[in-house]
Each structure stands twice: as C-alpha cells, then as structure tokens.
C-alpha cells in the first residue's frame, strides 16, 4: 500500500515535476521501500514457511508411498487411483456431507432465535446466556456428555422419550440413528454462536426501514423477506462458508463419540479417516492424498458460494 501512494500522486503532475520530485525523494523513497519490505517480510516468510512449504510438501507426499517416518517412495497417481476405489473413502465423504444438513437447520433456528431475542422479551439476557453456554463449553467434554446422553439404556435422551412412552433407539450403536444423533448434537453446540452473530445483524438493521415499509403496507412476512433477510445476508453468507469449511473438518466429536467410526462405518468423517490412515495405519501418503482431495472439494464449494453471493449482491444506499 505504501508503495502505490506516491505513484498515484505523481501521475497528476507533469513529467518534469515528477522526475524532479523523484530525484529529490529518491533517498527517502528507497528508505520507505526498505521499511516496507521489512514490514512485509515476516508475514511473507511466515506464509512461505508455514503454509506454502507444507502445502507443496503435502502435494508431493500425496504422490508417494510414505509411512510418515521413513523415506518416501514415488508412486505417481497410485494413491489417487486407490482412493477412488476405496469404499470407505466414499462412505466417509457421504457421512461428511450428511453432517452438513445440520447447517441449514442450525441457521434457521438461530435466526429465529435472534429475531425473538431482539424483541423486548422478559429475561432475554438469561435466554441469550443459556443458548450460548454450549458454545463456550469444551468440545471434548460436550462429546463425552452427549455420548452418555445418547446411551440406549439410561441416557438422558431416551429417558425423556420414555416420558412420552417412546422406546428410543440405542442412538450411537445403530447405523440408522448414529448420524442424525451427531447432527442434533452439532446443531445444539453451534446454535448460540450463529444466534449471537444474527442478533448483532438483526439489531443493526435501521428501524426506519421497517417503519417505512409498514407505512407502505408491508406485512411482517414481507418485512422479513424484503428487509431483514437481505440485511442479514452477509452474516448468513459468512456463517454458511465458515460452517461448511468447519463441517468438512469435523473430527473430535466423531473420534470421541464413535471411536471406531460407528457401526458399519456409519459415522466416520473424512478427516477422521485421514487421521486414522495417517497415524494409526502408517499410510501418511494415502492420507495426504485424501486430505488434498477434501481441501480441493472445499475450495470448489467455497468459490461457488462466493460466485453465487456476488450474483445476488444486495446493496443499500
């Protein structure tokens, strides 16, 4: 940034002026460049050392047979070929996608919460706190807690269902219910965070817009779809993007609640499978290939999202 400012300034002058000025300030400029470089160096070097190099390294590793300890053996695309024939990879990918259905559910619930809590409701501070508590709790502790809550024999969930005369399943041990059970837990855990962001966005919408719309005869639903929803769109976008990226990396809950990948591999996420391959089964090269495929998938999805967001840009003057 510092380097472009003088350039812009000189373009308005005559060439001579510019040349004179440049000469006059040459020393000063050089000094500035040095300082600029000095300030830029740490992040750039850090980026190269901690991001570019590891990334390049992992791309290389994905083309090798490597146990993470010894030397690497170049095997070309073999890892990728194996990957696409590995039923567990596809199963894990499907499971990871399945967990994403928690995102729209969570966003809808948290927007509803934010709308309700932005009203003058008695005890709203209390409610905001209660809904936010799971967010600040440790994920590992929460996972252990829910593992017990889902226990088929005496878990809280089935105790509550029993009050209504329902015999609950053994949630985490049944291939049909294991994934939904995890989704419920994730929504529960993430609700407060989205709620707080939405709350800020909802409260930032100028009241005058609602007043004007109301005077024009817009009903509450219209006001929601035409004012609130577009106005909180940046937050929605942010939450969708970060939730998809976060959701694609889901690991801790899986590893704690279903440490073997669930009955019939029903809960294993991709990152869990990557971890399992890399650190338990000494197939670091294969695991890296899998991680790269996941990274590229997330990248593609994110780019699509940014495109869509641009197409639907909403601005207000």
């Amino acid at each position: 940034m510092a380097t472009t400012a003088p350039e812009q300034a000189t373009s308005r002058w005559t060439k001579e002026d510019a040349r004179a000025a440049r000469k006059r300030n040459a020393k000063l400029h050089r000094k500035e460049y040095v300082w600029a470089a000095a300030f830029l160096a740490p992040p750039v070097i850090g980026w190269i050392a901690f991001l570019l190099f590891p990334m390049a390294f992992s791309v290389y590793a994905s083309f090798t047979n490597w146990n993470g300890l010894g030397a690497m053996q170049w095997i070309g695309l073999q890892n990728y070929v194996n990957l696409f024939q590995d039923p567990y990879f596809w199963k894990a990918l499907w499971n990871t996608l399945f967990y994403m259905i928690g995102i729209p559910i969570g966003l809808a619930l948290s927007l509803g919460l934010a709308l309700a809590l932005s009203r003058k409701i008695r005890g709203r501070t209390f409610f905001r706190t209660v809904y936010y508590i799971p967010v600040i709790s440790s994920l590992a502790a929460i996972a252990i807690l829910w593992q017990w809550a889902y226990n088929g024999d005496f878990g809280l969930v089935n105790q509550v269902l029993a009050l209504f005369g329902i015999q609950g399943p053994n949630w985490l041990m049944d291939p049909v219910t294991a994934k939904p059970a995890l989704v419920i837990m994730m929504v529960w855990k993430g609700l407060g965070y989205s709620m707080i962001l939405y709350l800020a966005a909802v409260q930032a919408v100028p009241r005058s817009l609602y007043e004007a719309a109301a005077l024009d005869g817009a009903n509450a639903w219209k006001r929601f779809t035409k004012i609130t929803w577009p106005m909180v769109r940046p937050v929605t976008f942010f939450l969708v993007v970060t939730n998809i990226i976060g959701g694609s990396m889901i690991f801790t809950e899986i590893n704690i609640m279903t440490p073997t990948g669930g009955p019939q591999w029903s809960t294993a996420s991709l990152v869990w499978y990557v971890w399992n391959k890399a650190f338990r089964n000494l197939q670091m090269g294969y695991a890296t290939a899998m991680a790269l495929v996941l990274g590229i998938l997330v990248l593609i999805v994110t780019i699509i999202q940014f495109r869509l967001n641009r197409a639907n840009n909403f601005s207000i003057d």
């Binding site: 919460l113 309700a116 809590l117 409701i121 209390f126 409610f127 209660v130 809904y131 508590i133 799971p134 709790s137 807690l145 829910w146 809550a149 809280l156 509550v160 529960w188 609700l191």
Partner: peptide, 13 residues
C-alpha cells in the same frame, strides 16, 4: 417457546 428451548439447551448440562 424460548423457555422450552432453554430447557432443551440446558438439560444435558
């Protein structure tokens, strides 16, 4: 509604 939700949120804890 919020109260019911709060119970659900707090119950496991």
């Amino acid at each position: 509604i919020l109260a019911v939700g709060a119970v659900i949120m707090a119950a496991p804890l």
